[in-house]
Amino acid sequence: MIANPQHLAFTVGMAALVVWRLSVRMRRLMTRQRLCVQRQWITAIVFALLPLVLLPGIEAAHAALWPLLAGLVSGIALGLIGLRLTAFESDHEGHHYRPNAYLGGAIAVLFVLRLGYRLYEARDFQLGTATSGQAAHLDPLTLGILGLLSGFFVTQAAGILHWYYRRAERD
């Protein structure tokens, strides 16, 4: 018997999103990537909407909003650092970029580890051995890491799009 179907739906949805992004990201971390404008827009929109989807649940627990905001600010700062470390180039094949493998990979792995821990806690909750009844999406550490991931990927995608449109203006 599932204790909280909403919790399970959230966890499965987040796991699917993370697995999708990690598979794409890890496959390309060390190689030159052809810039696909549509993919950057999708990344920017999906990761910008992610914290907004959580807002209705967070409104009930005002204290949970601060870790999410701190994570977003930290993610934006790391995204800006990542953009400085990203190599951009244009040639006869088109526009390309090479993101910093270590920074993006570390943030993604941090989120996957936290999600794995929350799944482990969900198993304890379902077995009745959990010590906390707090929903997984309202946990401050999880929200902070989610904000970090979201802020980082939105900033990266926006920066890449900015470079592309500025370059297209010149050409």
Rank of each mutant, 00 (worst) to 15 (best):
L119S: 12
H162S: 15
R118E: 12
I58Y: 05
L50A: 09
M14N: 13
R167P: 13
L146V: 04
A70V: 08
H162G: 14
T11E: 12
D91M: 06
G151C: 02
Y164P: 10
V53W: 08
L35I: 03
R32I: 08
Q38I: 05
L35V: 08
H96G: 04
V18R: 01
W20V: 12
T142I: 00
A108E: 09
G13A: 08
F88P: 03
E121C: 10
A101L: 07
T31Y: 07
P5W: 05
A136H: 00
S23L: 11
P51H: 00
L115I: 06
Q156L: 14
G147L: 02
P5L: 09
T43L: 09
R21K: 10
V109G: 10
A157S: 09
F47T: 01
A135Y: 01
P67A: 05
H7M: 13
M1S: 13
Q38Y: 08
G147D: 02
L22I: 11
G75A: 08
L141V: 10
G57D: 08
I145L: 10
H137M: 07
L80A: 07
Q126V: 01
F125N: 00
E89Q: 13
T86H: 10
A44D: 02
Y120A: 11
S132R: 00
L138F: 02
P67H: 03
G128C: 04
G13C: 05
L83K: 01
P5T: 03
L69F: 14
A63G: 12
L17F: 12
A3I: 14
A135F: 00
P140A: 04
S23M: 12
T11M: 13
V12R: 05
V109N: 11
H62C: 07
D171E: 15
L65Y: 12
G144T: 00
Q38N: 07
R123D: 02
L54W: 01
A108K: 00
Q40T: 00
L138R: 04
V19A: 11
Q33H: 05
A16Q: 07
L35E: 02
A136S: 03
Q40L: 04
L103N: 03
L110K: 06
W163V: 11
R21I: 06
L127T: 03
P5I: 03
R27Y: 08
T43E: 04
L119F: 12
V37I: 09
A3K: 14
E89K: 09
F88Y: 11
V12Q: 08
V12G: 09
V12A: 14
F111W: 10
F47C: 01
I107L: 11
A108V: 07
E89P: 06
A77I: 12
Y165Q: 15
L85T: 05
G57R: 02
L103V: 06
Y165N: 15
I2Y: 06
G82R: 02
L22G: 14
A122S: 06
L52A: 13
A168W: 15
W41S: 02
Q126G: 06
R32Y: 07
L8E: 07
A70M: 12
A48T: 03
L103D: 06
A77C: 13
N100K: 04
Y102D: 10
S74E: 13
A108F: 11
G128H: 04
W163H: 13
E59S: 14
L138E: 00
S74Y: 08
Y97P: 01
F88D: 01
L85P: 02
T129D: 04
I2V: 14
